[in-house]
């Protein structure tokens, strides 16, 4: 007897359509707000002339990196190289997208990580979801994102958020679970409230792990933002996509190089912000 095909695909389609139909207005509002944030940030970044921006980043790198001259010079030179390749506006667009999506991803991920560290049930629900999110090919996220938000920056951002959240959730959970038992006992033994215990003992102790999650989240956002160009997200990813479509190695490589420069700067900055 042949077992009939279980309609998993149909089910997912049904759910997606249902959300689309019944929550359309909410989706529109979300879309407008995030679009506003992204373009606002983008406009702000573009206010600075490239050379000024590169110098500001260089100086910031010098102090954040604890007087690391190499990082300072590298950041400034890298940004000037981007400007020189004529990719400045696209890069700022990419940075706006990355910062916005990483920021939103972290706003969701860190509380979820805390909840899953504190609550056994939440942990058992969230963990398989994370496994699913991380193993599902990232392109698959693009489909519902397009259905909900059409083409453009916002669906790219949503797909990026989903893609970039898991490591931040995991590392937050891990960080809190690894707080030594004696330390949580200290918090309890001196009469802390659960909130005091979390904010004064657990989160600060877990901070290195949480910051590693933040770093991962930003890096994954950057890689997903490039893929999101396929559904109309702007920025360097779009340039790469055009490079692929036209088989233009030069253009593709230059855009790729721009992404690498941004990645290195973002990575070093977040790493230096992590307390040792």
């Amino acid at each position: 007897m042949a077992i009939p095909k279980i309609p998993i695909g149909d089910g997912v389609e049904y759910v997606v359509n249902w959300i689309e139909d019944d929550f359309g207005i909410l989706l529109d509002i979300f879309s407008d707000v995030t679009d506003y944030i992204i373009s606002g940030l983008n406009d702000t970044l573009l206010l600075f002339p490239p050379i000024v921006f590169a110098l500001i980043i260089g100086i910031a790198a010098y102090f954040i990196g604890k007087k690391d001259l190499k990082l300072a010079i590298g950041s400034t030179v890298g940004l000037l190289l981007i400007e020189n390749m004529g990719l400045w506006v696209l890069s700022m667009e990419t940075i706006s997208l990355v910062i916005t999506s990483a920021f939103l991803a972290l706003i969701i991920a860190i509380p979820l990580g805390i909840v899953s560290a504190k609550n056994e049930f939440a942990y058992h629900v969230i963990k398989p979801l994370l496994d699913l999110m991380q193993t599902m090919p990232s392109f698959v996220y693009l489909i519902p994102a397009v259905i909900f938000f059409g083409l453009g920056n916002v669906p790219g951002l949503v797909a990026t958020i989903v893609f970039a959240m898991p490591p931040a959730i995991r590392l937050t959970t891990l960080g809190i679970q690894q707080v030594p038992k004696e330390l949580t006992e200290v918090a309890d033994a001196f009469g802390s409230t659960p909130w005091q215990k979390l904010t004064k003992v657990e989160l600060p102790t877990a901070l290195p792990s949480i910051m590693a999650g933040v770093n991962q989240c930003i890096m994954l956002s950057l890689s997903m933002v490039v893929i999101a160009a396929m559904i109309g997200a702007r920025g360097l990813g779009y340039q790469v996509l055009i490079g692929i479509q036209r088989v233009d190695i030069g253009q593709g490589f230059e855009a790729g190089l721009g992404i690498v420069i941004i990645a290195i700067i973002l990575d070093r900055f977040t790493q230096h912000l992590t307390p040792k």
């Binding site: 030594p180 004696e182 200290v186 033994a189 001196f190 009469g191 004064k200 003992v201 600060p204 102790t205």
Partner: peptide, 22 residues
């Protein structure tokens, strides 16, 4: 009540010191 007792009446010293690292 327990929190009050722990705050006012009892102090605890731990084997591995358990100082808050930061």
């Amino acid at each position: 009540e327990l929190r009050e007792i722990r705050r006012k009446k009892m102090g605890m010293v731990f084997q591995n010191f358990a100082l808050i690292p930061h």
